Amino acid sequence: MQPTIRVLPAEDLPAAWQLGRLTFGSDPQAPPPTGPPAGRTSYGAYDRGGTLLGKAVDLHDEQWWSGATVPAASVAGVAVAPEARGTGVARGLLRALLHGAHERGAAVSTLFATTTGPYRALGWEVTGELRTLDLPTAVLPRHPRPAHLTVRAGTPADLPATVDLYERLARHRNGLLTRTHPRFQVGEELPYDGLTLVEHGDTLVGYAGWNRGRGYGPDAVLTVEDILAATAEAARTLVGVLASWHSVTPTLRLTTLPGDAVSAQLPLELARQHEHDTWMHRPVDLVRAVESRGWPAHLRGQVTFALTDDLAEWNTGTWDLAVADGQAHLRRSSSEADLHLSVRGFARLYTATGTARTLAEAGLLHHTTPDPGALDLLAAGPPAQALDYF
């Protein structure tokens, strides 16, 4: 018998927490009850006796796509009781989550996967990695500090400025969260041990939030939780401040944003990977995904393709895509399509992490034309990135 899927009521949150604790091996001490968290919808799967068999959470996020905000479903906390695994519980949960996300207006979905196979079977596809690196602090470059830049310790009063700097740097990229969800709300205390600011006059041009860790021996680690810079000078200055920790924290640990100003100053050839998290992408609603995001202003073109989505039937059909003047439109078509794209293939193209030819080689695109390259129109723009784990 198929389980019953419904929105998780508040009285079942302790059971959901316990299921998550057992699945992910988290702290056995339950957090204090605070009521249903804002900005999320939790789903539960139940057997006939009302026992919770599985859960999944839809975080009501937004993502930046070339200057436009795209409503997103960040899928988190997917857990199924060991006795119920392999029985379709996860599929039922994620189908319900997609339908709920669609009803509330989401366009795309992202998740971090501990295993990719089940999610690929449901239309998500691997589109990148979030990498946390360890670097020897002693090898970090130290440059003379420019006279026009000021370095100081930040306080909670400076947190809104760091939020503004993040938006300035994230909004022209693709896939990064807007950090407007309630879980990112700044409080009256720093969320880390220290905050280092780099300013040019009254303008914040770089910051690093860090946790000191324990000890000062060979195993000591300085963990940078968040670091961004708007200029190369600000990035060099921040890296120089981090280098000054070399005598008491031999290892610097940080999550990098590939291609940003900070990464350009790091000796990445000396880095060791501490951790990597695979992230996957999926459309929730094709039309919203295409029409709500920004597109390169110079791009013009049109292509027709067919797509079948077994989990989100509103996406199934033949579509005409037209892109011009920084905008795109997707309309249902009555034409015969030579390009048949899978949902996973759409995710790879939309995130600019694949081309039509590579998707055809992978079996994610079937075509009857000699060259499927017209569909590369969907892959325009910089590749999508992730910086925040959930």
Rank of each mutant, 00 (worst) to 15 (best):
A147I: 09
V284Q: 06
D158H: 06
N211A: 04
P136V: 09
G259E: 08
D309E: 12
V323F: 03
A306T: 14
F346T: 10
T318C: 01
R293C: 09
F184T: 13
T114V: 10
V126Q: 04
T316Y: 04
P160S: 03
A107S: 08
L387K: 07
V224Y: 05
Q302V: 12
D338P: 02
E269V: 02
G92Q: 15
E269T: 10
V7S: 02
L19K: 06
L286G: 04
L254G: 03
L111D: 09
A380I: 15
L349N: 05
P37W: 01
D61E: 15
D158E: 12
A138L: 12
E167H: 10
M280I: 10
D134M: 04
V224G: 00
G317P: 13
V163P: 00
T196M: 03
A10R: 14
H340V: 13
H60E: 15
T353D: 08
H143S: 06
G105I: 06
P146R: 06
R293D: 09
G86P: 15
A235L: 13
L254T: 11
N211L: 11
D12T: 08
V89S: 00
A356N: 11
A347W: 12
L204F: 07
A337F: 09
A289D: 05
T318E: 09
T116P: 06
